[in-house]
Amino acid sequence: MSIKWAALAQTAGASFVITVAVVTVFALGVLALSRREAALEAGRSGAEGAASGRGTLALAGASVCFAACAGVVLYGLSLIAG
């Protein structure tokens, strides 16, 4: 009887890395969204230009993060259906 320890360790390692990566990217997205809200807040209380620039940048960053997460979810779906 041979137990494939390497495959087991690989699965465990991959699971750990993917989980941490996905949640990190998602948290960055959440962070960017809250920055955007802060920027919008600043925009309302004067300092128009700079604040709206920062707001757009933050929104773009959040979109990238959430798109990446959506990509992982789609890959997960393809694994389920596969």
């Binding site: 941490v20 990190t24 962070l31 969204l33 809250s34 809200e37």
Partner: peptide, 25 residues
Amino acid sequence: ASWGATKLAYLLTRKTDEKTSDKGF
């Protein structure tokens, strides 16, 4: 994995308004 991810999620969003970030999560 969940422990590590939780730690990082809290670390990254520590300066945000909890209400806003909770909505996202």
